[in-house]
Amino acid sequence: MDLTLKVWRQKDRNSAGQMVTYPIKGISPDMSFLEMLDVLNEDLLLRGEEPIAFDHDCREGICGMCSLFINGRAHGPERGTTTCQLHMRHFADGDTITIEPWRAAAFPVHKDLIVDRSAFDRIQQAGGYISVNTGGVPDANEIPIAKSVADKAFDAATCIQCGACVAACKNGSAILFVSAKVSQLALLPQGQTERYTRVENMVAQMDIEGFGSCTNIGSCAAECPVGISLENIAMLRREFIAAKAASENLP
């Protein structure tokens, strides 16, 4: 396959960037999208040009490191697929492919296609945990959890923190990501003791980071590579309303 790539190049956080066009030849349809970029980078290196910087690590769809806004879609055109699991057979010979970084004020660009997602970590630090120290915990089977509840919590827990929800959302909202953690812990009996404080603090941090506000468009869930459901967002709001009404936390 011969392709034309239009790739966002940006030297560093403080520089302006632009789209640069690269023709690329001889791509095998069995390559993954990132392997196609590897090929381009090897070419660039041999030509003495700077290779394109992009985030990636496990290349099996679980670490959440890869990103890329491909042809106008977060993680490209295939649903339920991270960029690293996207294969070139989903493109046609002669195609032009645009590749851009996640766009959000809360995700500033470090370089080329690499963005800073540390805002997500800070939101997790605001309350995405159950406060138990190592040791001194009850036996694992002491508290039975209905399978249906455990399964639901699991569904929420599968979030890989890649940021596709923010990238796809017209408003740059991070609520699907935040709600996944809030739901997981709110559903489990272990998470009950801190449920109010957790949702209050995580939502507050989400706002501080400069993410937009959810308007229930649904693009986040549609583009989520692991299928986090919008039900979690509703759950976050229930938790938020309950917390604001019942908690004794004053700002």
């Binding site: 040791g135 915990v137 009850p138 694992a140 455990a150 489990l188 272990q190």
Partner: peptide, 10 residues
């Protein structure tokens, strides 16, 4: 035990 207490959904 530790993981379950942390909310790991086994």
């Amino acid at each position: 035990d530790q993981c379950v207490a942390q909310g790991v959904p086994f």
